[in-house]
Design a protein around this nucleic acid. Sequence first.
DNA 1: CTTGCAATTTGGATCGATCCAAATTATCCG
DNA 2: CGGATAATTTGGATCGATCCAAATTGCAAG
Lengths: 348, 348
Amino acid sequence: MANGRVTVIDIAKAAGVSKSTVSLVLQGSPLVNEGTRTKVNAVMRDLGYVYNRGAANLRQSSAKSKIIGVVVNDLTNSFFAELAVGIDLVVQDAGFVQFLANTSESLDRQTEVIASMREHGISGLVVSPARGSRAINFKALVSAGMPVVAVVRPVPGAKVSSLMSDNHTGMFAAVEHLAKLGHTRIAFFGGFEDTAIFQERLAGYRDGIAAAGLGYDEGLVFACAPSRAEGAKAVARAMAADDRPTGGVCFNDAVAFGVYDGLRARRLEPGVDFAIVGFDDVIEAGTSVPALTTIAVDPQGMGRRAAQLLLKQINAGKAEAEAVVTPVRLVVRESCGVNRMKPGRRSA
Amino acid sequence: MANGRVTVIDIAKAAGVSKSTVSLVLQGSPLVNEGTRTKVNAVMRDLGYVYNRGAANLRQSSAKSKIIGVVVNDLTNSFFAELAVGIDLVVQDAGFVQFLANTSESLDRQTEVIASMREHGISGLVVSPARGSRAINFKALVSAGMPVVAVVRPVPGAKVSSLMSDNHTGMFAAVEHLAKLGHTRIAFFGGFEDTAIFQERLAGYRDGIAAAGLGYDEGLVFACAPSRAEGAKAVARAMAADDRPTGGVCFNDAVAFGVYDGLRARRLEPGVDFAIVGFDDVIEAGTSVPALTTIAVDPQGMGRRAAQLLLKQINAGKAEAEAVVTPVRLVVRESCGVNRMKPGRRSA
DNA sequence: CTTGCAATTTGGATCGATCCAAATTATCCG
DNA sequence: CGGATAATTTGGATCGATCCAAATTGCAAG
């Protein structure tokens, strides 16, 4: 009993029908008589039958495995954890299960886990690509006709669907907000210059500066790793310059908190002596002191949309790449200095 | 090419050998000639062969599926996200993949996903049980001989392995620390009274109070939901009493941050006017103001240990329940008031 | 040039479900 | 009641890999 598991044949024998009938019951076919159905179901309960999807998938098309893969680059980042939860929600409701793997930004890990997931018969993949992912990393999947949705980060050149937040519009709004508050020297902090997201956000920044009638100054762009520690260093560089900025937009919230640290190290109070806007709206943004003005992207919502997009493609049978941009919105809190900035510091 | 996938038979034909030989190559058997092996491997690469584990598992014992299930009660909580990452690390290294599902504390969801995972042939399960989980929820798994490791929360009565942090010792140390700093009226904040963890931590508190030669006062225990908002309310209740505490230990860090809020609402500064010790050591504990003194439990380490324990049981073939307690340690930062408390407030 | 033994290779049977064409049973109607 | 029609049920064949007993090959010794 411990090892010999119950199969359709056992059920069939016990219920006095054929295995084909049991199979029909399992699939909820309308062909089977109501009486037999209930009897078979009863027997299944009694014997503790467990459906073997592996066996079923062998006979069926691989698109019916009811398994999807989810690969994220950093699950310890609450942004991606939320994303995974959003995916999970939709996927569970659809009766799927998800393989979830964390790559820690390692391309090798990513390649390994995707291969492993393929072997296990996933019918689709949602991936937040590790840094440096290229089209070639998804070539095999795509040419096998597997639906793939890339989230958060684009994969240049790959024929996969994508779901990105509206980086350009978000950063544009952030700059616009600071400009309206009277800032004329607005810095840009953080991000790796060789990533597509950085370029999108920087473009939004640049266009925002232009739209506000200010001149774009390359010297106000302080790229660095998108971490708290590096954000602190970046603002230190900015404040060491001659013509200091009076406020700045940040690549993400982690950098923004780093800017808090860097300012305080110079005895400047964020939101009072210097205006800051972040990007992402992580949980801590609302509870930090001062509360962080930032661009909210709703990672859980993105996860839900990504899963829906993927399921749609799985059900459609054939997957044609589709690019979706999800809206973002400016959340005004305290760090931008609304009603808090010392007037003396203002330039205009 | 898009749909007709490559099988061992295709490989066999192309390489001019039998499918049995291809199978032996796949399993890395030493029986096969080195020349044939390389040729077969080359053909597999050329044809883009993808191993079908589902088919293989059908013939083999279910313990070899190389899939484990991971079920967590709240993935948006960074504690559990870290736990999942720890599990992922070990599991990936062992060549397994994991199904990960989030239950959001819903028992129904938990039941569903576990059933689904079983159907997909997991060879073991790590579960951080949803609130209210009872032995019956895991009965079917256990009697089927499936290795199960419960983490973080115990499942009373269930014959599953468990991996818990040392709640008693941790809370004991927290109280001891505050007592050494001179506090004589130490409160306990937060937690649901009907959970096992609460009882363990409360027992640690009580024993710590006794060991410090102080009298246990039930009126100093303020139970509440383990959230920030409720923590704030709890401390409000505490400070409204006649004989106020001068410090407190908290069920977890979220409650501790709530206590910060509640104190500030009464114009009291945490770590100066009132000493606080948390439990968990979440990421924000180190960066909050004041930095939170807390009991560190290393969730990622717990995840790793849990995965190792599970893999051990899977490999052992037969799973006998085992209970492991993981050590915790006191991390002294600022909120306990070391060198910061106003002397006047001290009672002794 | 056999024989003996190790090294390789191989053809079916098998895992647990699905699918299909065909068989069986039930129901209806003139 | 016979025959048509609808409603159910059923026995292989099948999916893609593994396993096993048996066959084949290679090679050195006699």
